[in-house]
Design a protein around this nucleic acid. Structure first.
Ligand SMILES: [Mn+2]
Ligand SMILES: [Mn+2]
Ligand SMILES: [Mn+2]
Ligand SMILES: [Mn+2]
Lengths: 220, 220
DNA sequence: AAAAAAATTTAGATTAACCTAAAAATATAT
DNA sequence: ATATATTTTTAGGTTAATCTAAATTTTTTT
């Protein structure tokens, strides 16, 4: 028995919301993320539990089972590989690919995924800097810093984004902030935590706390 | 209002069954092709008619409207472009791609199709020799011959297949019959219409009527 | 430890896409 | 021109995924 489009989406979202420690995810959090009502979530949770994809006890929240985790990670693998394809091969912008990948991630065919992976040269990260699980289902989240945790004067590498919204990504494009660029913090305003930064040692610009909060970076 | 996966499949099948002249398609023919029951087809026809995608009068069979035709051809365009991608870029065999393309054809995004088309170099034909509709929705079926219509001694080019089943395509692979190869008819057996042919002027082989019936060819 | 608030589940509907069985329309054969 | 057969439609259900409203459980506050 195959998992439906909808079931796969639930698993992927449970994976995302339960975070690194695999914490319990609440019905309401899922209703929010799936844009459905809590009652609909409860129905689906019962179904996923019956299929052995989640651990579920009424009123207690849910966690993925080993099987559920495997399915979720495979969907994530496909999503991120297709995003690489769309950007690297078809020339889409990183702000344009998420919704398309959201559809492509559900195409079933292990052979397809493996061939796509090879065609793309076994990429390790997607266009947003998110790690791509390997064929065996290993997904290691690199431990990046958020730019707000970086001190005045430090130089860091831009490694990823927390907000994947097109509007945010387009804002970064306009600011000249791209994956891999060097960000040096030249000023921090105590009042609102806004900052001035220098990009790749050349142009300077002002960024708000909202932007800093959504930038993943790494010390060099 | 978007068309569902299922609706798109119906339109594509109606297009295929109504042929060049856009003849009426019967409920039973659709039930057969969709692997559903006639009663289910009737339900769907009412819906497609309400959406203005088909002309439908009870007991009279159906034809596509202009709009329905556009949708059908766009699905066919996507199907065939993805098949080219799978064969040319991912290295799949022509016998392996149909089912995958059957899923990919429903991914909605005009931008995606146009970029894919450009990435593939605007191919005119898919891996089975079927013509790919252009971006404006023009689809011109070349008028090929069926190999059974070719006389003894003639040399023709292999241009396509009527049967797209993996088993048939694999049989052609084993026989060394590929798209574009030269087929010379060296013998026809009156009894069962089987034939001996020479491929690319080199190796000879015996082919049954069943095979000849499914090969599209062109005089040079 | 009650009471109030919040979260979750249950009950009962709805819609899309299917089904079977029965009725009606059309086509074919005598 | 009837009778028979075939095709198609209608009637009435089912399942997956959703919904609203009501009931229940858990959490938080007083
Ligand atoms: Mn994405
Ligand atoms: Mn991504
Ligand atoms: Mn095909
Ligand atoms: Mn094809």
């Amino acid at each position: 028995m195959q998992n439906s489009f909808t079931e796969e989406n639930y698993l992927k979202i449970i994976h995302a919301l339960s975070g690194r420690e695999g914490q319990e995810v609440s019905t309401n959090a899922l209703a929010e993320s799936t844009s459905t009502r809590a009652a609909s979530v409860t129905d689906m949770l019962r179904k996923l539990a019956d299929k052995g994809l989640i651990h579920y006890k009424k009123y207690q929240g849910v966690r993925l089972t080993e099987t559920g985790e495997k399915v979720a990670i495979n969907v994530i693998r496909k999503h991120r590989l297709w995003e690489v394809f769309l950007v690297e091969k078809l020339g889409f912008g990183w702000d344009e690919v998420h919704d398309i990948a959201e559809e492509m991630e559900h195409i079933p065919s292990d052979e397809l995924v493996e061939r796509l992976d090879a065609f793309l040269g076994h990429p390790r990260f997607d266009p947003h800097g998110d790690p791509i699980p390997d064929a065996k289902g290993n997904l290691t989240e690199p431990d990046y810093l958020i730019l707000t945790d970086v001190s005045l004067g430090e130089k860091v590498l831009m490694m990823g984004v927390l907000d994947h919204a097109p509007s945010f990504l387009q804002h970064l494009d306009r600011s000249g902030i791209t994956l891999g660029c060097v960000i040096e913090i030249t000023e921090i305003n105590e009042y609102d935590k806004s900052a001035s930064v220098r990009i790749n040692g050349s142009h300077s610009l002002f960024i708000s706390l909202e932007v800093s909060k959504n930038l993943l970076v790494q010390r060099r």
